[in-house]
Nucleic acid binder design. Structure first.
Lengths: 145, 145
DNA sequence: GTCGTTGCAAAGCGTTTGCAACTAT
DNA sequence: ATAGTTGCAAACGCTTTGCAACGAC
C-alpha cells in the first residue's frame, strides 16, 4: 500500500521528465510512509538514515517539488511547517495549547465545518492548512490564562 | 477608547512592578491601536515612527511580556506570527490561499464552530490562534490545485 | 541606589540560493 | 551529450541572548 503510493508518485515525477535519484527516492518513501505530518527536519533525519549525507537543501527542494506536483501540502503548526500527503487532507490538526498533545479530526467532520463556514460567509475554508489550537479533554479541567 | 485600554494595560504593568519607559509606552500604544493583527516587523516600524531607534529585540521582548501578562495573543499566519489583543479573540482570521486577501469571522460564528467541534470531540478549539486558510468569494470561481 | 529595561552586537535557526560537480536518462 | 539534481558554502530573515550602559522608581 505504501509501495503503491510510492510508485504512483515516482510515476508522476517520471512523467514530468524529472529524474529519480536515490535521494529523491528516499525522500518520497519517507514522506509517504509518515502517516500524519512530518517536519522538514525530522524528514531529513529519517532520510539520512537511508541515504547518508543528504543535504537539508535537497529535502527542502524536494518538498517544494512534491507540493508543486500536488502530492504534498503543508500546514503551519506551533513550531513551523509540517508536510502531509494531500490525500490526507481530510486530516485536521488539533493541537492542545496547554499540554502540546496533538490529535486530529478526520473524515466527515472537516466537511461539515467547511460547509458551516461557507454557508454563512462567502469563504470556502481549508481547515487542514493551519492547525486548530485549543484544549484537549484532559486540559479542559483547569481554566487557562 | 484606545486611550482607556492603553491606560489599563499600563496600570497592569505598573501593578506588577514593571517600569514604563517611552519605548514600552509607544509599543503598547501601537499594539492597542491596531485593530486586527500586526506583525512584529510592522509593529517595530510604527513604533520607530514614534520613538526613533527602538530596537527589534525590545519589541520582541515587549510582545512576549504583553502575552505573558495576558494582554496579547498571537496567531500563525502564512508569513509568520501576528499579534492581536486578547479582547479581540472572537476575531478569526480567514486568509485566501489564492489571492492572499484577509477577512475575518466575528461575533457568534466562532462560538458556533467551537461548539460543533467540541460536541463531536472532547477538544475545545480556540479558532483564533491559527488562521483559517481557504478560498475567498472571488477566488472560488476557478478550481485550485 | 536598585533593579528593571534598553541598545548593540553576536549568535541561532530554519530556509534559500548560487554554483560547480555529478548523474539519470 | 543534455539537462536535471546534489552537496557545499554562503547568504538570509527572523528571533533570541549576553552584556554593559541606562534610567524609572
Amino acid at each position: 500500500m505504501n509501495a503503491s503510493s510510492d510508485q504512483s508518485v515516482l510515476d508522476l515525477l517520471r512523467s514530468r521528465g524529472l529524474r529519480m535519484t536515490p535521494q529523491r527516492r528516499a525522500i518520497v518513501t519517507e514522506v509517504m510512509a509518515s502517516n500524519g505530518h512530518i517536519s522538514p527536519a525530522s524528514l531529513a533525519e529519517r532520510v539520512r538514515a537511508r541515504v547518508p549525507g543528504v543535504d537539508p537543501s535537497t529535502v527542502y527542494r524536494t518538498l517544494d517539488l512534491l507540493e508543486e506536483v500536488g502530492v504534498l501540502s503543508h500546514t503551519h503548526l506551533e513550531n513551523g511547517p509540517e508536510y502531509h500527503r494531500l490525500a490526507d487532507s481530510r486530516h485536521v490538526h488539533l493541537v492542545c495549547s496547554s499540554c502540546g498533545s496533538e490529535d486530529s479530526l478526520s473524515l466527515a467532520e472537516p466537511d461539515r465545518l467547511r460547509d458551516l463556514v461557507a454557508r454563512h460567509h462567502s469563504f470556502a475554508p481549508d481547515l487542514t492548512h493551519f492547525a486548530i489550537s485549543g484544549l484537549c479533554r484532559r486540559c479542559q479541567g483547569r481554566r487557562p490564562r
